[in-house]
Structures are given as C-alpha cells and as structure tokens.
Write a protein that binds this DNA or RNA. Structure first.
Length: 423
RNA sequence: GGAGAGAUGGCAGAGUGGUCGAUUGCGGCGGUCUUGAAAACCGUUGAGGUGUAACAGCCUCCGGGGGUUCGAAUCCCUCUCUCUCCGCCA
C-alpha cells in the first residue's frame, strides 16, 4: 500500500510510474485525493467539537461539585446537541477512512525507475546467463518420464490421494528433497539468516500484510470454518513476524529464513505449464527475507540475487537472471529478479526463484517501522526471495544429469543424500 | 469438547464514573559521581491523526465492535484471544 502523503503530494509521479505497469491510476488517484480532503475536513471538525465537549463536560463536573446544579443543566443542553452532531461526523469520518483505504489498496507498488515497460514475461530483460547447458542425446527424457522410469515421483498415486498437482515423492527423490532443504538452510545460516519454523496457516491480517489479500484472493487455499489461509510461501509468516513492530537501528539488518511447504491453487493454469513438476499445488521451498533501512534496500537486493546465484552454481545448474518488466511485476514489488534454471530435456527455462524489493509497500500495510538516529519513526523496507523452490530444481537436476547409468547427484549434495546416483 | 479466570504503555503491575494517556517498579535513553565500569542519585522515555516553515496547540487510542452518561480504562452488551482445571490426543 502506498502512503497517503505520497499520493497527496506526488500524484503525477504515481500516475506516470504506474504506466510502466500498464496500470492507469488516474481515476483512482483523483478519487483518493478527493476523499482524503473530505476525510481531513471531517477530522478537523470532529476534533474541534470533541475539544469543546470535553471542556464543557469537565465544567459540568466542577459545577456539580460546587452545587451549582442549574448552571450545569444549562450547559448540558449544548453538550447533548454536540453529541448528536459528533455522532454524525464520526460516521462520516469512518466512511471516508474506509473509502480511502479501499482505494489505496487498489494501487500497486510503484516500479523502481530502472524498471522498463512491457506487457509480459517476453519483455523481461535477461541480465546474465551462467553455467553450461549440457549436450544431451536425442533420447534424453523429460523429468516426468525419468520419474516413471526410476519410480521416484508417483503422479498417479498423488492424484488418487488428493488430485492433480500433489505428487508423491518416493525413495531417492524423497531423500533428495530432504537433502536440498538441509543444504539450503545450512547455506542460509552461513550467510547470516536466522532460521525459523513458521505456521503454514495464517490469518487474514497476515495475508493482507504481505499483499496476498485482496489482490491474490483466489490463489490461496482458504479454510472457511476458521477463516484461515494455507500459505502460498513462507514469505507470509516470515515477514509478518514484524507486523506492528517498531525496530531500532541496531536491529538491522534483519535476515531470516524458513523452510516450508507452500500451497497454491494456481487457478487458471493449464497445458504444458503444469506438466510434471513444473507447476504444483503443493511444493517445498526455502525462503529468505530481509528487513532493512530504506537507503540500503537495493544494495541488499543485489546481495540476495548474488546469494541465490551462488546456490545454483553450487548445484551446477545452468541458469539465467532476468529483470522483470513493468507488466510482469507483482502487485507489491518495486523491482524483481527471476532466477531460471535450464531444464535441458524440456528445453525450457524454469523459474526457481523470484527475488523482490517491496520497498515500503508491505511495511506500510503491516506497520513495520523503525526508529532512526533522530528518533523519528519511518517505514522499513522488506525484501524476499526463494532460496530455493524445490520441484523445478529437481526437474532440472533429473533432466540435466541423466546418463546411461542413471542420474548423477551434484557433489555438494552427496553428503546430504548419502548416494551419488539415482538408478 | 466442558467449567472458570483474564486482556491496561517494551515488560511487570495499580487503577470501579470527572484534568487518567493513565500511580509505581523494571527495562531503555541522557546526566551526576568514577581513571573506567557497577552501585547510588537526578532527569527523560507510547503510537496515530490533525495542524505548523518548524515549534505549540487540538483530537483519538487502556484486546475488537456497539451501548449507557454531560463525562468511561472504569458500568452494560457482544465478539475475539489468552490462561487455569477436566476430557480427548500426536
């Protein structure tokens, strides 16, 4: 959520910058400015009236004490009248506040000035490519066929137990997942991230705080009987640790990480995108989150991209980094880099991480603030990134490392898996 | 699931209708003392809105919502949550 002050004082800037997202903000911004003015006027009137009521009420108390009952009764007429006026004003004010918030939450975050316009992922800019794409023979199999061949991922049984998008991992791949999680968490801790184990189900306030609600309402699994949501990423519980918190300068940088299962309804997905492990309703992921001072957030974004790149290097997978264009940018993000590994048999780039700077957009929603050197309270900046999401990493590992004898496990994982090959 | 108790500032914990945004203690910050530190002593220490060039001023907030009253942290209703005991249970 953008800050009302910014909208009030810099409305043109907002309209211009949101164009990069193909978002026409003119109408909303105009309405916000209008309702904001009304809100402030109502607030002023109410405050003045309340001030009068308060001092009169105090006066009445004094008069009663000194036995001047009649004089008190006379003043009561005025306060009673004010009471009715104020009730009205109060209602108006509440309505203006609700209207203002309803409008404000419809504005997406302002893209960073270096974010380029564009309509879709096709307009994303490739920042770099690393690693070498292995030359596979024509008989190379996509991962879902390898999964069947080695009996390591059972889509049919997952289908029976739950439905599409809930695979059953077996044997060496089940262990490989555990190995990856441990490896990722160990690396995160080495890099200074504090490990958390978070609730997998969150309430409305948390889902709102990170921006899943109301924007991505239909994308989360909802438990109506308790009005709770299954997390689509541990970003939600991790970042909400700091909801309604005022940090001190010495607390920075806040770095935390969590492994969690993630649940996504993925309504509207279809076709080859959902084949095999490419897109699932349930998957595992290690997430990293940072809360930092505004002036440092872009430096930290770069640092996080570098960190995730290093992880993929260690897994010996070819990958590229793309910077999202305005049209592909998430609602809450100012800037996002995607990390994509190349899945050689599918001949596809698979997104395995998305690293974003939200600037103060989430912080404003969840009142995540810090006290600066002068004792002033400001919104902090939040960032997060996958480090990493497992299924597509596994898809790429299976495909890229297939040989006649089986699938080789990257050396760095062998201490965690206890085996070197899946065969 | 059944019964009971409670929700107040960073924490602990007073406050049952009239300068209570809130006594006090701890913690934090600043200072005195000290070579330095500790102790002791003194001072200071919530957030939001409105407003101002900046101060000031004014308003709101004692779990959420509603009500009674000229006036509510204090009374009433309601919701949520927490704790204790019992039951069940990984």
């Amino acid at each position: 959520m953008l800050q009302i002050n910014l909208v009030r004082e810099n409305s043109q800037l907002i309209v211009d910058r949101l164009k990069v997202r193909n978002f026409d903000a003119r109408g909303i911004v105009e309405k916000i400015i209008d309702v904001d003015a009304r809100r402030r006027e109502a607030q002023k009137n109410l405050d003045d009236n309340l001030a009068e009521s308060k001092s009169l009420a105090r006066r009445i108390g004094e008069l009663y004490k000194s036995g001047k009952k009649e004089e008190a009764e006379k003043i009561k007429e005025r306060t009673t009248r004010l009471k009715h006026i104020n009730k009205d004003l109060q209602q108006k004010l509440e309505q203006y506040k609700v209207d203002q918030e309803d409008l404000l939450i419809r504005l997406p975050n302002i893209p960073h000035e270096t974010v380029t316009p564009g309509d879709s992922e096709d307009d994303n800019q490739v920042v770099s490519e690393s690693g070498t794409i292995p030359g596979l023979t024509d008989t190379a199999l996509p991962h879902w066929e390898l999964a069947a061949k080695f009996d390591i991922v059972d889509f049919e049984t997952g289908n029976k137990i739950t439905g599409a998008g809930f695979p059953l991992y077996k044997g060496k791949v089940a262990k490989l997942q555990r190995a990856l999680v441990s490896f990722f968490l160990d690396k995160a801790m080495e890099a200074g991230y504090a490990e958390y184990q978070v609730p997998l189900i969150v309430n409305r306030d948390s889902a709102f705080g990170t921006g899943q609600l109301p924007d991505k309402d239909g994308q989360m699994y909802h438990i109506p009987s308790d009005n709770l949501f299954l997390i689509p990423t541990s970003e939600v519980p991790l970042t909400n640790i700091f909801r309604d918190v005022i940090l001190e300068e010495r607390d920075f940088p806040v770095k935390c990480t969590a492994y969690s299962t993630c649940f996504r309804r993925e309504a509207g997905s279809y076709g080859k995108d959902v084949k095999g492990l490419n897109r699932l309703h349930q998957f595992d992921k290690v997430e990293i989150v940072q809360v930092v001072k505004p002036e440092e957030s872009y430096k930290v974004l770069d640092e996080m991209v570098k960190y995730v790149g290093k992880l993929i290097d260690l897994l010996e997978l070819p990958y590229r980094i793309t910077k999202l264009c305005g049209g592909d940018l998430g609602f809450a993000a100012s800037m996002t880099y995607d990390m994509e590994v190349f899945s050689t048999a599918q001949k596809k780039w698979l997104e395995v991480s998305s690293i974003s700077n939200f600037e103060s957009f989430q912080a404003n929603r969840m009142k995540l603030r810090y006290r600066d050197g002068q004792g002033k309270i400001n919104l902090a900046h939040t960032l997060n990134g996958s480090a990493l999401a497992l299924p597509r990493i596994i898809a790429a590992l299976l495909e890229n490392n297939q040989t006649e004898n089986g699938i080789n496990i990257p050396g760095v994982l062998v201490p965690y898996t206890g085996f070197e090959i899946i065969n």
